[in-house]
Amino acid sequence: MAPHVKIERGTRTSRIAGRLALVLLAALAAAPWWTGRANLRLLGEFYTFVALASLWNLLAGYAGLVSVGQQAFVGFGGYVLFAAAMFYGVPPLLAIVLAGVVGALIALPMAPLLFRLHGAYFAIGTWVAAEVFRLSFAQVSVLGGGSGTSLPARLVTGIAATRDQRDMLLYWCALALGLGTVAMIYALLRSRAGLALAAIRDSEIASESLGIDIFRTKLAIYVATAAVTSMVGALIFLQKLRISPDAAFSVNDWTAYVIFIVVIGGIGTIEGPIVGAIVFFLLRETLADLGTIYLVILGMVAIAVMLKAPRGLWGSFSHRTGIVLFPLRRRVVHPDAR
């Protein structure tokens, strides 16, 4: 038995990419000093979509839980922030964290019910759950009922005195949340939990007979995803300063676009949702003036990618070149192992 066997996790490409990412990150963190308000908002929105897409990818691409009801948590997180700030005086930035905790607590009893459903039934079940959330919040008159409510001005100025400072603060929050989400998912997939997820994805029967608790693994992923999605939702509506049931629980904004991003970028890869979000924002910013034609083009892009590159843009590129920026694999360095 060789006592000094080493297990390698990184690759040369990933180490170079890691260094470049740090430079890029420093540049993005300094964005308030080199770009204007409009771009800052756009970037902030981009980070929230990177987070949402990465979370959906974790759920669907890694845990096999294809949900079309994640808007339940986006909206729920938003409402938790508004309620906590308006009725309990919780500082809005702290309320983002609170939204995560409450999001996890509400997901915990939902999961066992939803997990009784499989495949398409699970997908529809999550959507139904999200509609229940929307209809329920439309009944809450103190939060504006069906027409929604705005964050009172005193609370808005409570975040930071000037609008510029507020924009900066929210920008950094979005950057932290987007980056934090990707980092959390990367760490998770490299850990034991990632091993369990990969095993369950390939064979549930073999996983179970090797001691993996399939239910608990999926439950943990579902609840963690719900928590972070709620935090992102809280931040999104803090950026908008206004919330209504239709906007908060929109299947279009928080799930359809997110699925588009993940499928375009490459499901089941960490890079995919980031690449997909870049493509989505480029398309949106250049074509949004075209109105409905923009949506037609989005649909055509989705169809073209699914036909020509079913692994998604990053998935196909990575498959062809072998390049991986977030390596998950373990390489045994042993005299006999190739």
Binding site: D202, A206, A337
Partner: peptide
């Protein structure tokens, strides 16, 4: 029923990590 997306080492590691509860 191999875990086809993993290496041989990772397949075996899965057994040791979960079957024995090892880090």
């Amino acid at each position: 029923h191999p875990f086809v997306g993993m290496t041989i080492y990772e397949n075996v590691l899965t057994g040791a990590a979960f079957g024995r509860g090892l880090t």
